[in-house]
């Protein structure tokens, strides 16, 4: 379990390259492997193919399914519903949060996010519950 935690594979879905870079650089400091998707459709494809240990989902990612859609879809499929999902979006209203959690998100982070906040959130979710 410890080994799995150290070698976690994470997927970040965001249409903005700089955000993806920021997340990748931040999370790779923890030794985690980072996969990237630039839109909702890609996020779904990679999630199904790679089964990441955790996903970070932006909400607005241009055309195609948005982050909430992606979350709902993954949660509705047996093989992907176990992937914890963290919403990472500039949508910071209570109703947006509610939508996110209703879609099955484990956590809801709003932009701008801080590096430690991001790492801590993921650590808490990945840490083996004991």
């Amino acid at each position: 379990m410890k080994g799995a935690y150290d070698m976690a594979k994470l997927l970040i879905a965001d249409d903005l390259v700089p955000i993806r870079q920021m997340v990748r650089i931040t999370l790779s400091t923890q030794g985690w492997t980072i996969l990237e998707a630039e839109n909702g459709q890609k996020a779904l494809e990679i999630a199904r193919a790679e089964r990441p240990d955790l996903m970070l989902l932006d909400v607005d990612m241009g055309a195609g399914p948005n982050g909430f859609d992606v979350c709902r879809e993954l949660k509705s499929a047996e093989e992907t519903k176990g992937i914890p999902i963290v919403m990472l979006t500039a949508h910071d209203s209570e109703s947006d949060r509610a939508v996110g959690f209703a879609a099955g998100a484990a956590q809801y982070l709003t932009k701008p996010f801080g590096p430690l906040e991001l790492i801590d959130t993921i650590r808490t979710i990945l840490a083996p519950a004991s």
Binding site: L16, G114, L116
Partner: peptide, 20 residues
């Protein structure tokens, strides 16, 4: 809007890192 978001994001990182 995108630029403003990125600016806020970059600022937040800069502040956090400066604090650290």
């Amino acid at each position: 809007e995108e630029l403003a978001l990125l600016e806020r994001q970059a600022t937040r990182y800069a502040e956090d890192l400066a604090t650290l």
